[in-house]
Every structure is written in structure tokens, then in C-alpha cells.
């Protein structure tokens, strides 16, 4: 068995894969948040940003494919680990108390899967734009860009959609409140002194993401962000 094969068959090796894929996904959600927050700077900003992204052309596709692979890998390995973990205790305890483990750490699969469901819906909505006929008919904005701004506003003006988003953001935050410190441990970048600090930092980070992302649907619902004059 080559060392690579051995590595990715091993519990520790798989954890590394989960962690690395996790980190990549974190980087994406950070970047993506920064992009999306530009909505508060007005239509021109965000539409321009979206246009720039699309101008990347093939590169954009490269990034998309890479992201897709990352999510697939992340999910594949975490699910496999989860299955093995269940097998390792065929007979459950009749009574089990939790001494220390956080809720987040015990619900990673659940939170993860819901985030996955969200991503699927989200792509259909904003990338393939199949969820809402109006998106296709949106007029170009004055600068001739596709009007991502109006698309978001229209999208989030439905309390249902926004609600689902905020819920998803909550679960993502839960996922990351464990994940974003956990990966240090998995990668071996941890010691007795660091553990508590990383745990705190991870939680703060996760909830910042939550507020950052949720602020967008919230703002639309509250009417702080409206469709702009020209459309």
C-alpha cells in the first residue's frame, strides 16, 4: 500500500482532508460575504462586482469547478467518517450524559447537510436563476451590467426566502463555531494553551459571518435596501 493510499485510508489522514477542504470553504464564504456586502454601497458597486466576476470567464469556471470539488470532497469524507463512527458503537448507551462536548460539535453532519441544501437552492436562485421568472426579465442597469442588485432585492423581498436564508446562515454559523477552531486541532496546529483561545476566536468568527450574511436579507425585508429608481 503506497503511503498516499495508506494516508487517505487512515482516520488521521481523512481528518486532514476534511480540515483542508473546510478551510477552503471558509475562505470562500469570507470572500463571498465581502462581495455581497457591497450591496450596501448601491447597485453600481455590486453589479459592477458581479460583472467583474463574470468577466473572469474561464478562470471563473475554474474557480467554480474547484469549489464544487471541494464541497464534494468535504461532504464525501465527513459522511464516511460519520458512518464509521456510528459503526464503532453498534449498541448505544441507555443513558448518556454529555460532559463537555458543545452542541455545534455534535451536530456537524446535520448543520452541514442543511447548509448543503441551502447551497443547492441558492445556486438555482442566483446562479441559474430558475426559481424566479422575473430574474430573467430584469433590465440591464444604466451601466449595462446585469442587475444583480435588483435580483437580490426581489429575491429577499419574499419573507419566506429571507427566512430560509437566515436559518441557513444560522446553521452555517453553528457549523463553523466548531469547525473554524476544530480544523486547527485536526491539522495538528494546536497545543494546551491555544485550545481555549482558538475555540473562542472560532465562535466569534462564526457569529460575525452570521450577522454579516443575515444583514442582507434583513435589510431588504426592513426596506433599508430598495429597488433603485431606474428599474
Amino acid at each position: 500500500m503506497t503511503s498516499i493510499a495508506a494516508f487517505h485510508r487512515s482516520s488521521v489522514g481523512r481528518k486532514l482532508i476534511v480540515a483542508v477542504s473546510g478551510v477552503i470553504l471558509i475562505l470562500f464564504v469570507i470572500g463571498h460575504l465581502l462581495g455581497n456586502l457591497q450591496i450596501f454601497l448601491g447597485p453600481d458597486w455590486i453589479n459592477g462586482y458581479a460583472e467583474h466576476l463574470r468577466d473572469l470567464g474561464p478562470l471563473l469556471w475554474a474557480i467554480r469547478v474547484f469549489l464544487l470539488l471541494t464541497v464534494v470532497v468535504h461532504i464525501y469524507y465527513t459522511i464516511r467518517l460519520a458512518i464509521e463512527n456510528r459503526r464503532a458503537r453498534p449498541l448505544r448507551y441507555r443513558r448518556k450524559e454529555i460532559v463537555k462536548a458543545t452542541l455545534a460539535s455534535r451536530t456537524m453532519v446535520m448543520s452541514g447537510l442543511i447548509v448543503l441544501a441551502f447551497i443547492v437552492f441558492h445556486l438555482l436562485q442566483f446562479t441559474f436563476r430558475t426559481t424566479d421568472p422575473r430574474f430573467a426579465t430584469l433590465a440591464r442597469d444604466p451601466l449595462g451590467h446585469y442587475d444583480v442588485y435588483s435580483m437580490m432585492v426581489l429575491g429577499f423581498s419574499s419573507p419566506l426566502v429571507s427566512g430560509f436564508y437566515i436559518l441557513a446562515m444560522f446553521l452555517l454559523a453553528l457549523h463553523l463555531s466548531h469547525g473554524s477552531s476544530s480544523f486547527f486541532q485536526s491539522l495538528g496546529l494546536n497545543n494546551q494553551q491555544l485550545t481555549p483561545r482558538l475555540a473562542l476566536a472560532g465562535r466569534v468568527f462564526a457569529w460575525l459571518l452570521f450577522f454579516g450574511y443575515s444583514s442582507i436579507p434583513a435589510a431588504v425585508l426592513l426596506g433599508w435596501v430598495k429597488l433603485s429608481a431606474h428599474s
Binding site: 485510508r9 487512515s10 482516520s11 481523512r14 481528518k15 467518517l81 464509521e84 463512527n85 459503526r87 464503532a88 458503537r89 454529555i98 460532559v99 463537555k100 462536548a101 458543545t102 460539535s105 455534535r106 456537524m108 466548531h178 476544530s182 486541532q185 485536526s186
Partner: peptide
């Protein structure tokens, strides 16, 4: 791993 133990997910129990 061969013995069939589970994998750590850093729950610290």
C-alpha cells in the same frame, strides 16, 4: 483504525 475505533471530531469528551 484496524481495530475499528471511530474517528475523532474534536468534541473533547
Amino acid at each position: 483504525d484496524a481495530e475499528g475505533f471511530g474517528n475523532c471530531t474534536n468534541t473533547y469528551e
